[in-house]
Nucleic acid binder design. Structure first.
Lengths: 208, 208
DNA sequence: TAGATTGTTAATCGATTAACAATC
DNA sequence: TAGATTGTTAATCGATTAACAATC
C-alpha cells in the first residue's frame, strides 16, 4: 500500500525542484531534466512518478503544476498535519525559522522548552510554551508530529510523555535511540549529524 | 575495499553507545545488548563487527574499550581531519556547539560567514572568518571537510569555490543539490530536514 | 519517418536476515 | 553436558538499473 521510503524521500525533492522550475516559468519538464537537477537517473524519476500514478506525455514530458499537485496529494494526504518543536536551542530555532520560509502543508503549531525565559516568546510566528503544557497543547492544537531538538538527557523522558499524549510521528535529532512501546504505532525518523559527518570523513579517507 | 555505507553509519552509532556503556562501568557487551540499545538485530551487529575484523568471545561478547578503539581506527583513519562550518545562522551555531561537546577525532577548525558582525567572533572555541578568506584558511588550517549551513541561494557559488580550494568532502544542509565537476573526487553527503519531516508526515498518514 | 520520449518488466545490485556450525 | 554466544555463508528482501515496447 505505502510507497517505498526512498521514493517518498525523492518525491519531496522532486516537489522542491518542480517549484523552482515553476518559478522560472517552466511549465513542462522531462524526466532527464528532473534527474540531472537532482543527480539521479531519468529511469528512477519516471519509475517514481509511475508509482504515484501520474502520467506525462512523450512530447512534452510532465506538466510541472499538475505533477506538483499530484505529489502534494500523495505526500500531504488529505489532512494537514500539525507539528511541534521540542527544545528551543540553536537547532530548534534553525528548524522553526527554516521551515516557515518553505511552502508545505505541514505547520509548526507550537514550540516547547523548560527555560522560563523562553516561555511565551514567539519565534518566526511560533509560540513557545512550557514543557509542562505539552500534553494539553498537543491535544488543543491537534499536533501529531513532534520534532525533538532537546538535549539527549531528556529525550527518553519526553518521548514517554509524547507516547502517552498520543503523538503519531517523531523526527528525532537527539542522537539518542528512542524506546517506544510495542503496542503503539508511532513512526520515528532518526537523524544524527555526527554520524553524517563521520560518514563523510570515512569516505574522504577512502576515496580511491 | 571500503565498507558499505550503511555499515559505516552504524559503526558511528555503535561507538556512541559503547562510550555510554563504558561510562556506566560496563567493560564487555553482547551483540544483543548493542542491538537492543540501537533497535537493530544482533546478527547485523555481529556482521558489521565482523566486517571491521574485530572478534569477541563466546563467553563475554565484545570488550567495550577494544571495540571502541577498533571502530576508531576504521572510522577516523590515521589522519585527524579538520572541518569548517560555512554559514553561521542558527543551524551553523547548532552544529558547532553540538559538535564540540562530543568526543570524536574530527575537529571544527573554522567558521565562515559574510556578515561583518560575526567576523572574529568565537563560538564554542571556533573562530569565525570572512568568507573571502575561505581559500586561504582552508589551506592554512588544512581543512578537508566543509559543512554547508548557509542559505540556499549561495550554496552553489560557495561550492564552486570549495572545489577550487581542494576540499575533499562536503556535508550539505542547504537542500540544494550541488553541482560538482566530474573530474574532481569530492564526497558529498546531503541532508534535508524538510524531506525528513515530509517523510514522517507521509508514514503517519499511512500507518496501518 | 526518424528521433526522442514515457511506461514498465526483468535483471542486477546491495543490504538484511535466516540458518547453522563452532566454541566457550 | 546444556545453553548461550560468536562468526559466517546462503537466502531473502528491497531498491536501482537495463532493456525495450509503445507513442508522439
Amino acid at each position: 500500500m505505502a510507497l517505498p521510503p526512498k521514493t517518498v524521500e525523492r518525491l519531496s525533492q522532486y516537489r522542491r525542484i518542480l517549484y523552482n522550475n515553476l518559478n522560472k516559468g517552466k511549465d513542462n519538464i522531462y524526466s532527464h531534466e528532473l534527474a540531472s537537477q537532482l543527480q539521479l537517473t531519468p529511469v528512477q524519476v519516471r519509475r517514481d512518478i509511475m508509482l504515484i500514478g501520474y502520467s506525462g506525455t512523450q512530447r512534452k514530458g510532465y506538466l510541472v503544476e499538475d505533477l506538483i499537485t499530484r505529489i502534494g496529494k500523495v505526500l500531504d494526504g488529505n489532512q494537514k498535519l500539525n507539528t511541534a518543536t521540542i527544545g528551543i536551542g540553536h537547532l530548534g530555532k534553525a528548524i522553526i525559522t527554516y521551515f516557515n520560509g518553505k511552502r508545505t502543508k505541514l505547520d509548526i503549531a507550537a514550540a516547547f522548552d523548560v527555560d522560563e525565559n523562553k516561555i511565551n516568546r514567539v519565534i518566526a510566528d511560533v509560540k513557545c510554551y512550557h514543557i509542562n503544557e505539552l500534553c494539553n497543547k498537543i491535544k488543543e492544537l491537534n499536533i501529531s508530529i513532534a520534532i525533538l531538538t532537546l538535549s539527549p538527557e531528556h529525550a527518553q523522558e519526553i518521548t514517554d510523555k509524547l507516547v502517552v499524549c498520543g503523538i503519531k510521528g517523531i523526527l528525532n535529532f537527539t542522537s539518542v535511540p528512542l524506546n517506544i512501546p510495542d503496542n503503539v504505532n508511532i513512526y520515528v525518523e532518526d537523524y544524527d549529524m555526527i554520524t553524517s559527518l563521520e560518514k563523510v570523513a570515512y569516505f574522504v579517507n577512502h576515496n580511491d
